[in-house]
Design a protein around this nucleic acid. Sequence first.
DNA 1: ATGTCAAGACGAGACGTTCCGACTCGTCAT
DNA 2: ATGACGAGTCGGAACGTCTCGTCTTGACAT
Lengths: 199, 199
Amino acid sequence: MTPPKAPDPTRRSERSRQAILTATRELLFEVGYARLTIEAIAARAGVGKQTIYRWWSSKGAVMFDSLLDMSRAEGAELPDTGDVEADLRTVLRAIVDEFNDPVLDGVTRALNTEIQNDPQLSADMRDRLLGPQLEATKDRLRAAQAVGQLAPDLDLSVAVELLFGPPFHRWLLRTAPLTHEYADTIVTMAVRAMRAAPR
Amino acid sequence: MTPPKAPDPTRRSERSRQAILTATRELLFEVGYARLTIEAIAARAGVGKQTIYRWWSSKGAVMFDSLLDMSRAEGAELPDTGDVEADLRTVLRAIVDEFNDPVLDGVTRALNTEIQNDPQLSADMRDRLLGPQLEATKDRLRAAQAVGQLAPDLDLSVAVELLFGPPFHRWLLRTAPLTHEYADTIVTMAVRAMRAAPR
DNA sequence: ATGTCAAGACGAGACGTTCCGACTCGTCAT
DNA sequence: ATGACGAGTCGGAACGTCTCGTCTTGACAT
């Protein structure tokens, strides 16, 4: 029983790594995730297929890393004007805009698709991409709690889902258009629910 | 320019149709959607591949029809005990249970996946599978409005998303476990938001 | 310090496999 | 006789494994 002997990360070529992530991103935007192939990535990056298979377990993992690499150093902090409701409106409107952007829409749907049958990728997404965003939102809500704008015993995990769940639902199932007005309505109603005690 | 001459539906073999839908369902449960192939369906159903390609446009379409065929005659009516909040708790708990059922979880995720890159299938899903469920919920909320339990000018489309969005978000992104207690919390908070006027 | 050398990652691409979707048969029911 | 049917063939795309020969790197000997 020989374990498949893991490669040595210290000898990894940073040059190839970057070329792969860049090529993936380019192809993702050019042809979309469905028509993205490992062979095309390797060709574009000027890299052997084995180099991709050596370091990534799946097409989804490569995409995830390439997106993570791109979104590095994105400020994960929410505005704080002192008015939670106004700040949340800003955030929700920004999210709606992202959902309406064709490129981001496509990439996000692809990521979402891939997550469904890859638990490892799902965990990575939750911890490294989605997590920070949700935590930043919780931080802002906590600050609002501290100044009495929200119920002191509000469950923050539930709170963020109350905010992000509805637009997510509408976007993913395409039940209706996502507008700024809609974002504002959700914030109004969610904040109303979050002002009183949870039970 | 010869149009691809549509097949004649009146001569369609009901026997083959059922065999295909059944085989698809079986394979879906056995190997999951990702490893489901048209060739395997044809083999299992004792049918030529062309018979599948003749009547369905994609793997997703076959799956959708097979699920629709299964879920026929499912009562799409909500309980009405006179207490909206209690009735919604019942509904949300049932949804949580469905999400926690391994088979339904798998099928729903597969359907969800397929929707992301097939607009036609997405529309079918919205109109024929999801729509009735959402409409039934809206009906119940309308009745509650009529007896003054909810704000009279509440936007019902927003309302259903406020209820279903959060658990959907939690389930799809696997951010936390889905429990009955969680369902109850969501209902409590959503109803609180729905009691006052929307703005 | 400098030279030698084995380990292992690398680019390139051949290979066998799976599955797709179009197509071709001969059969069968209407 | 028409046209859907079961069965299966076919070229093509992409997969994931593999085998080359090359290049880099660190350990060791001189």
